[in-house]
């Protein structure tokens, strides 16, 4: 009889793991809390650094998982994984139990809620938006202010909810810097002539071709980078945003008026993941993400035998890393199920 593997989460990590497990001949069920699979990728218009359409990656997943024996169970929240004898029991929020020989957790991340950085006035000042809101504008093809006008000056605040002791997140979300660079270029593409300013603490351009895109943003698109963290945002009588920042390279405070300010929201352990961790007894780190058995050679294994991790539920990851991590999880699952004693 085929071994049954349950994958929790239908974003890129979960779809990748499920698709590869099917290829390897397992009976696979994929649980997704939303109505459809795809996760955050559904929201993203274009991907960095090559700015290919997010939909192309979704197409890849369609080919990978559709028409196969994969059972996709949408709109279902998994709350707990229990152990009984040699097998695992996956319980949904509705209290339905499913038995599995192995479980892959791919619950991903939640985008940081920018309202928590009160000083930036998200959901208070009309033209303060999040990076996700801007992607939605790109998908619609209209970058406009709340007054329906074309913005002439747009700012980006890096590290919103990342590297910030005040919101309890000491870690770097890793993808926001390059996302800001990508979105800054896209603003220039959508609204030529707009001036764009990125306010950063450090430019963390660690991925392949990130630094090159940063340079392109400066050289070809004239995006301005100002080193300093925005301390507060307010609204002028003309409904323009006023940002205060220390221009750390000039060594003086700087005040600027903008038509739109984009907050580069970081990544946090998902709420669903948190609940799953506490009810299942899975270890989490100081950063609240799932804590793998070993950060060097066991990044897919959990502290419970038979439960594995894939993707951004363990740390902030980009799509490329997520796919690699999910495939590595599958390798660990195969290895685990090979052992006939289980």
């Amino acid at each position: 009889m085929k071994k049954h593997v349950i994958v929790i989460g239908g974003g890129p990590a979960g779809m990748e793991a499920a698709g590869q497990l099917i290829k390897n001949g397992y009976d696979v069920s994929l649980f997704e809390k939303d109505k459809t699979t795809g996760g955050h990728l559904n929201e993203w218009f274009k991907l960095f650094p090559d700015r290919r359409a997010g939909s192309e990656v979704l197409d890849y997943y369609k080919n990978l998982i559709s028409g196969k024996d994969l059972k996709i169970i949408n709109s279902t929240v998994v709350e707990k994984v229990g152990q009984s004898g040699g097998s695992l029991t996956v319980s949904t929020k509705e209290g339905i139990e499913h038995t599995a020989d192995a479980v892959v957790i791919a619950t991903g991340f939640d985008l940081f809620k920018s309202t928590r950085k009160e000083e930036y006035g998200y959901e208070i000042y009309d033209n303060v938006i999040s990076s996700a809101d801007l992607e939605a504008m790109f998908r619609k093809g209209a970058v406009i202010t709340s007054e329906g006008k074309t913005p002439k000056n747009v700012g980006f605040v890096h590290c919103v909810g990342s590297r910030d002791e005040k919101v309890g997140n000491l870690y770097c979300s890793k993808l926001c810097c390059i996302t800001a660079v990508k979105q800054a270029i896209e603003i220039k593409e959508h609204v030529p002539g707009t001036k764009v300013y990125c306010f950063y603490m450090d430019m963390r351009m660690g991925g392949a071709y990130y630094e090159e895109l940063y340079r392109e943003a400066q050289e070809e698109w004239g995006v301005n980078f100002i080193r300093g963290k925005v301390s507060e945002v307010s609204e002028s009588i003309n409904n323009r945003l006023i940002v205060k920042v220390e221009d750390t390279l000039a060594g003086r405070p700087l005040k600027m008026e903008l038509d739109m300010l984009v907050l580069m929201a970081g990544m946090e352990m998902s709420e669903a993941g948190k609940k799953l961790a506490s009810l299942t007894g899975l270890k989490t780190g100081d950063n609240r993400f799932f804590s793998p058995a070993d950060h060097h050679y066991g990044s897919n294994r959990s502290n419970i035998s038979g439960i594995f991790y894939a993707g951004a539920c363990t740390m902030p990851m980009n799509i490329t890393e997520t796919i690699s991590h999910a495939r590595a999880a599958v390798a660990d699952v195969i290895d685990y199920l090979k052992d006939s004693k289980r």
Binding site: D247, A250, R252, P253, K255, E257
Partner: peptide
């Protein structure tokens, strides 16, 4: 006995 301090801020506008 004192003068009003000047703003040090870079006024971008």
């Amino acid at each position: 006995g004192f003068a009003i301090s000047q703003q040090r801020q870079i006024d971008f506008e």
